[in-house]
Simulated assay, not measured.
Amino acid sequence: MSTQEVADKLVSLCREGKYVEAYDLYADDAVSIEMAGMPGDEVTMGKENIVDAYNEWAETIEEMHDGSVGDPIVAANHFVVPMSMDATFKEQGRWAMEELCMYQVEDGKIQKAQYFYEVPSMG
């Protein structure tokens, strides 16, 4: 798949709420990088570990109130997708945030995902 095709497929799956299925677009040795200095900042290596980390995070959500997945912007082998969410987390309260999700594609698979956001106050 081309970078545009990967971007379009990822956006389509995320808009349908098929986040776990979206990880099928990742290479087996993909890398995921969270914001440095933020809670949970880390580099996760390998698709299996990335999916496990997502599932652990998803388990902390008590209720999803709103969210959006924007259109991808593609440049060469990279694309960026704006996303937002408003959710109540177990033992942490409600949290609304926006982020930019940047992806690098190699050989038709996502090789690297990096996220840019600020953690808002929870309430």
Score class of each variant (00 low, 15 high):
1 M>H: 13
1 M>Q: 06
1 M>P: 11
2 S>M: 14
3 T>C: 14
3 T>N: 14
4 Q>A: 14
4 Q>W: 05
6 V>S: 13
7 A>V: 07
8 D>R: 14
11 V>Y: 01
12 S>L: 08
13 L>G: 08
14 C>M: 12
15 R>M: 08
15 R>W: 08
16 E>I: 05
18 K>A: 13
22 A>R: 06
23 Y>G: 10
24 D>Q: 15
24 D>Y: 03
24 D>G: 10
25 L>W: 06
25 L>C: 08
26 Y>D: 12
27 A>P: 12
27 A>S: 15
27 A>T: 08
29 D>N: 14
29 D>S: 07
30 A>W: 09
30 A>R: 08
33 I>W: 04
33 I>V: 15
33 I>K: 12
33 I>E: 12
33 I>R: 10
36 A>L: 12
36 A>S: 11
39 P>C: 08
39 P>F: 04
41 D>I: 06
42 E>Q: 14
42 E>W: 06
43 V>T: 15
46 G>V: 03
47 K>T: 07
48 E>H: 12
48 E>I: 12
49 N>C: 11
49 N>I: 08
49 N>W: 08
49 N>Y: 10
50 I>E: 03
52 D>V: 02
52 D>W: 10
52 D>Q: 15
54 Y>L: 07
55 N>K: 12
56 E>L: 09
56 E>Q: 14
56 E>M: 07
57 W>N: 05
57 W>T: 10
58 A>Y: 01
59 E>Y: 10
60 T>P: 13
60 T>I: 11
60 T>Y: 11
61 I>N: 00
61 I>E: 00
62 E>Q: 15
62 E>W: 07
62 E>T: 10
63 E>T: 13
66 D>W: 04
67 G>Y: 03
67 G>R: 00
69 V>E: 06
71 D>I: 04
72 P>E: 07
72 P>W: 02
73 I>V: 14
74 V>Q: 03
74 V>D: 02
77 N>T: 13
78 H>W: 06
78 H>E: 05
79 F>A: 00
81 V>W: 00
81 V>G: 05
81 V>K: 02
82 P>H: 05
83 M>H: 10
84 S>M: 00
84 S>I: 02
84 S>L: 01
84 S>A: 01
85 M>I: 00
85 M>T: 02
87 A>G: 07
87 A>N: 05
89 F>M: 11
90 K>N: 13
90 K>H: 13
94 R>C: 00
94 R>T: 01
94 R>V: 00
96 A>S: 11
97 M>D: 03
100 L>A: 14
101 C>E: 04
102 M>G: 11
102 M>E: 14
103 Y>G: 01
103 Y>P: 01
103 Y>Q: 09
105 V>L: 13
105 V>D: 10
107 D>H: 07
107 D>G: 04
110 I>D: 05
111 Q>R: 11
112 K>Q: 15
113 A>Y: 12
114 Q>F: 02
114 Q>P: 04
115 Y>T: 02
117 Y>W: 12
118 E>L: 08
